[in-house]
Computed example of a mutant assay.
Amino acid sequence: MVRLSGIFLIIGFIISFLLGLIYGDVTIPISEIFHPSGVYAYILLNIRLPTLTVAILIGAILSTSGAVLQMLLRNPLVDPYISGTASGGAFGAVITYLLLMLNLPFSWIIYFQPFVAFFTATLATLITIMIGKKSGYLGLVIGGVLVSFIFSSLVTVILSVMSAKYPQIPPLTFWLLGDISVVGWFNAIILSLFAILLLYFSLSNSRLIDLLSISDEISYSQGVNPNKQRVFWLLFISLVVAYCVSIAGIIGFLGIIVPHIIRRLIGGNTSQLVMYSSLLGSTILILSNILSHGIFGYFIPLTALLSIMGAPIMIFALVRKDVNVEEY
């Protein structure tokens, strides 16, 4: 069963990859995919391939992060943004626009927007860790929710000010709801390093994560401090996810639904969950990005598409009691 499911996931990934090469803002003929020339060669090599690579890597990162955090916190409804990473990154992005629009000092920082978003996302994570450091994993979850509310409220205030003063400026809500468009090879290379590190640490520490997912008491008896491990993983995952947020905005639901689907299809331990979640997450994000750009003739944010697909899955799981929230 596991091997058959794995084969289907690999086939689905290959098909989605080919579709991702063909479809987008500009449809590339199949003949040009294998022998690109002229403008199609430029689009394929400089726009389509790096964008597709980034979609694959972000899909793998968010899905793997969700799987690991759900195991560590023993909660299937936890996502990679639980530490406030997403709202912190969004705050950094919109603050650069505000400095530019109001012609305030340091408005040149708009050219370093991804780095600012990365810094504020990391700051939000550190605040969450400080809040929940001595109160266990429940403190981390509650602290993350509070930090998310704070930074989300600040983002709302900034967007309101910008809309009132500059109504002619297009709203930034599309960016805040996820968009993988022209990202370049530089971002693809950085993301590939993050993805390799995340997958390596997740697989090499899979037995430890399995132990932490069972019981804190058993972990202590084996000489493992569960709270220190959770703080380390939360910080590491947040740093990786922060970079994703800084270049693609907030892509919601993926980190929740993919590990849940894999648990239903395959089950297994952390190593299997991580490997198959990364594969399915990449496939779903590739297909979502195709729908987001080009299929309907206009842009649709990724989070909107993923929410439409993901919410019914989670509702179905709750109704069938596959997810028992009372246990948490």
Rank of each mutant, 00 (worst) to 15 (best):
R320S: 06
E327M: 03
I82Q: 01
R48F: 05
I315A: 02
G88S: 07
W185E: 01
H293Y: 03
I142T: 06
K321G: 09
L19S: 15
D25W: 14
L4G: 03
A60T: 06
A195I: 01
S202W: 00
G223V: 07
K321D: 00
S135I: 07
I14N: 06
R320A: 08
D179C: 05
G89S: 12
K165W: 05
I209C: 11
I58T: 11
L199M: 13
V54I: 10
M309N: 01
V54L: 12
A93R: 10
S152I: 08
S282Q: 09
F194N: 07
V54Q: 12
S31Y: 06
N324Q: 04
L99N: 08
I131G: 08
A164H: 13
A124E: 00
A164E: 11
S282N: 05
F13A: 14
G294Y: 12
Y111M: 10
V94A: 04
S135N: 10
Y23M: 14
L254A: 00
P312G: 01
L193G: 12
T85W: 03
V182F: 13
D210A: 02
S246G: 07
L154R: 02
F316W: 06
R263L: 15
S238N: 08
Y23T: 09
I180Y: 14
Y137R: 15
T156V: 04
Y42R: 03
S31E: 15
I110F: 14
G89D: 09
Y200S: 13
D210V: 06
N225E: 07
Q113A: 15
Q229K: 04
Q229E: 05
A86L: 07
L18F: 15
S238R: 10
P301W: 12
V157H: 14
L254G: 10
S202K: 07
N75A: 12
V157L: 10
I295G: 01
Y243D: 01
F296I: 11
I295H: 04
Y298P: 08
L73V: 12
G267Y: 12
L306D: 00
S202I: 05
I237R: 00
V319D: 00
F119Q: 00
K228I: 02
L306Y: 05
S148T: 14
I284W: 05
D79I: 07
G59F: 05
I47Q: 03
L193F: 14
N269T: 08
A242C: 06
I295D: 01
G178Q: 07
S277M: 10
S163Y: 06
G66C: 02
L203N: 10
S65V: 01
F106Y: 15
V155L: 09
V245Q: 02
